[in-house]
Amino acid sequence: MSPVDQSGGAETAQPGVAVSAHAERKDEHVRLAMSLHAPGKTTPWADISFLHHALPGTALDAVDLSTRVLGSSWQVPFYVNAMTGGTESTGRLNAALAEAAAAAGVAIASGSQHVALRDRAREDTFRIIRRTAPGAFVLANVGPTVAPDDAARAVEMLEADALQVHVNVAQEVPMPEGDRDFSGWAGRIAQIADAAQVPVVVKEVGFGLSRRTVDLLASLGVAAADVAGNGGTDFVAIETARREDGAYRDLVGWGQSAALCLLECLHGPAGSAPVELLASGAVRTPLDVVRGLALGARAVGASGHFMRTLTESGPEALYRELVSWKEQVRGIMALLGASRVEDLACTDLLVTGATAERARLLSVDLPALARRSA
């Protein structure tokens, strides 16, 4: 999930003031996200492990990392997920993220473009992504409150290959200036999906998508869903840190992990999901990527971890890390006997801990996952 601002925020009667405040909030979110992000923290992905088989019968050089997402072939099965933009400093971050992603052959998603839709002077902080990564698969990003015409503008701004529509009710509720009416969001998503000239992906921002929500999204005409679970950057923690009254702090940790979402959506009683699934949220290692792929995601996104690498060590370090992730994913796949991403669906998964406890409540057959290679 994203380490920075994915919100639209409430509209006010003073558009110029609202745009400026929104832009300042993006910088504030970057600072808070980095301060709250603990690299050594155990995440829900630790509940997913693999049964080791000592003779996998594979070769690293024969492993194919490519995957198909939204009708396109991606070189690797992970991507730089939605981050930021809208201010001078976040524009520089976007340029560095895009440069590293393009050099490593990795897809990249923009942060929320709402601020640029309200103030064209801020568009360049997003346009820089496409200029820096002319051949990359790029996803634009808006919320469900925008009009279809504005969604189209966001796509044009980036010459994007797809459009993310972020949903973030759990962030908006504790945000002092957040939206308060979510009753029309489903209808607005349907309008955006109907009008869009590119595939639409609905993305949570770190609280997870249930199977009920994914089924609803399919009926609205979206092409894919990024389950974006909890355990990583927590926007409730960020928004409550911005408050002085302490309200909503008991909601820190709200939602489901990406692993639990994939288990419910793809391995529960309802069977395979009606749309393509992507996964993000608390993704910090190449092993997390392979875990998500083995649970059925087409690709796995990371944001907070990559942002930390960039801000602490610089663009070259981020590029080296993306290349390292590619090689580590390749090595783990070979260890598991998977020559293609699709082969990971036959690996034996051991689901334990809190994820297993909750998956059983959702009627997921965990013993069957442990015997898939048979």
Rank of each mutant, 00 (worst) to 15 (best):
R330D: 01
M157S: 11
D47Y: 05
Q75L: 14
G331S: 15
E172D: 09
Q164M: 14
S2Q: 00
A193T: 04
N81V: 11
S72W: 07
A96P: 08
G40V: 02
W325S: 04
L60Y: 11
G253K: 04
C261D: 07
D161T: 01
R118T: 12
E342Q: 14
A33H: 02
R212H: 14
A356V: 12
T355G: 10
L322E: 06
A147Y: 08
H22P: 05
L287G: 02
T42D: 13
S7K: 08
A247V: 04
Q113H: 05
T213E: 13
A190E: 14
G184M: 04
L287V: 09
L32S: 01
H166V: 07
A21D: 13
P174M: 10
G71W: 04
P77E: 04
E24W: 06
P199M: 06
W254T: 10
A147V: 14
V165C: 07
L36W: 10
H52I: 12
A297W: 08
L310G: 04
M157T: 12
S280D: 08
C261F: 10
L310M: 09
E321L: 15
V289L: 05
L139P: 00
S20C: 09
I332D: 04
T84G: 03
G292W: 06
A297S: 10
E239T: 00
A33Q: 00
G296I: 07
A59M: 13
L216K: 13
V200Q: 09
S2V: 10
V329Y: 09
G255Y: 01
T132Q: 11
H305V: 05
L97A: 12
L51V: 15
D61A: 15
E276W: 08
A162Q: 06
I192H: 05
D119C: 08
R25F: 11
A23Q: 04
V173Q: 09
E99A: 15
M83P: 00
L163Y: 03
V173R: 10
R130P: 06
T87A: 09
T240Q: 02
G337N: 06
P269W: 11
V169H: 06
A241K: 02
A98S: 11
V198N: 05
L369W: 07
G337E: 00
L369K: 06
R330Y: 03
V214D: 02
M333C: 09
V146S: 01
A133T: 03
Q164F: 14
V222S: 00
G86A: 08
A270C: 08
Q113F: 02
L32P: 00
V289S: 03
V329R: 03
G353K: 08
S219Y: 01
L277V: 04
L251I: 00
F50G: 04
S257D: 07
